[in-house]
Simulated scan of single mutants.
Amino acid sequence: MDAFVRKFCEKYSLPITVSLQLLEKMEKFSFRKGDFLVQEGERNSNFYIISKGIWRGHYLNDGADVSVWFASEGEAVFSSWGYIENTPSLVSIEAMCDSELYGISKAKLESFYASSAELANFGRRLFEQQLLGLENWLISGGSPRAKERYLALLEENPELLQYVPLKHIASYLWITPQSLSRIRAGLGKQKKING
């Protein structure tokens, strides 16, 4: 079984058999670095699972590019506005590296959910996890502990530094790129002292 399937099952508390049933109904897509799943102002009501790569959700705020989330292998990615309301997305979803996704239309996914209580519960858990992730981002953004937020982000997604420019990581942490550079320099010095 692929590693992304195990991660997906762990994150959303889903039995492997159900996950494999879902994947059988999905279509595989390939994207290049810089491709968009959806751009701000566009509609996309499909649901995707990342099998390879890193994605970033972001929006423009008075010309500033603000990162809202990062998602990697084994995580779900979709436009909340498109999926829930079939309205234009307020967030662009961009590939940070060459990536592969499995996708399914909202209609097919909802038909899948309707086929059993277990699958309906999966849908509920999935959206609960997405909401929890958003609230964690909102709460940590107000935190004065940028260093701790940075370390937690790297612990959750160590591959981010390999594919995501530091300016996007800084905007996700709600700090300037210069502040992130100071944090990284301080951690480097700390490593040398402790190393």
Rank of each mutant, 00 (worst) to 15 (best):
E42W: 02
Q39S: 12
A117H: 13
I175R: 11
Y59L: 08
A3T: 15
A95N: 01
S51M: 00
E27Y: 01
I93V: 11
V164T: 11
A146C: 09
L60W: 09
P165W: 11
F127V: 06
E10C: 11
I104V: 04
A71N: 11
D35W: 09
N157W: 08
M1N: 09
N121I: 02
Q129W: 06
E110V: 00
I84E: 10
L37Q: 03
N61F: 07
E148V: 09
R145L: 00
K28M: 12
A170Y: 07
S89A: 15
L187P: 01
E10R: 08
A64Q: 09
Y83M: 07
I93W: 03
D65I: 01
K11Q: 14
R149V: 04
Q162V: 15
V5H: 02
E110H: 14
F36T: 00
S79Q: 10
H58S: 13
S72A: 13
I54S: 05
L90K: 15
G141K: 06
E27I: 03
K167M: 05
I16M: 15
A114K: 12
A170W: 01
E135R: 07
V66N: 04
G74H: 01
L180R: 04
A107T: 06
G141P: 06
K33T: 08
E42T: 03
L166G: 01
Q178K: 13
E94G: 06
S105N: 02
V5E: 04
L132K: 13
Q39D: 08
N157P: 04
E42N: 11
F78W: 03
N86R: 10
E128V: 13
A71W: 05
L180D: 05
F29M: 13
E118Q: 14
N86V: 06
Y83I: 00
F29Y: 15
G57H: 05
C97K: 12
E85R: 12
C97F: 07
W137R: 15
F8V: 06
W174C: 06
Q178S: 15
S179Y: 07
E75Y: 00
R43I: 04
S92G: 06
H58D: 11
F70K: 05
P88S: 11
L166M: 07
S72M: 10
A76T: 14
S140N: 12
A76N: 07
L23G: 09
V68R: 02
E118V: 08
N61H: 13
R125C: 05
L37D: 00
A117L: 09
L138R: 12
V91L: 15
I84N: 12
E94S: 05
Q162W: 10
P15T: 07
I193G: 01
N194F: 04
F47M: 09
W81T: 10
E148A: 15
E148H: 12
G53S: 10
I175V: 14
E128S: 14
I50N: 03
A120W: 02
R125I: 00
K25T: 10
V77S: 03
V68L: 01
I93E: 02
L161M: 14
F70W: 04
E100M: 10
S30Y: 09
Y48G: 03
P177E: 04
R182K: 12
G123H: 06
E135A: 12
R6I: 07
A95F: 05
M26W: 12
R149G: 03
N46Y: 14
F78R: 01
E148M: 10
V38I: 02
S105D: 00
L151S: 06
L37N: 03
L134E: 12
N44S: 04
G41E: 08
Q21W: 09
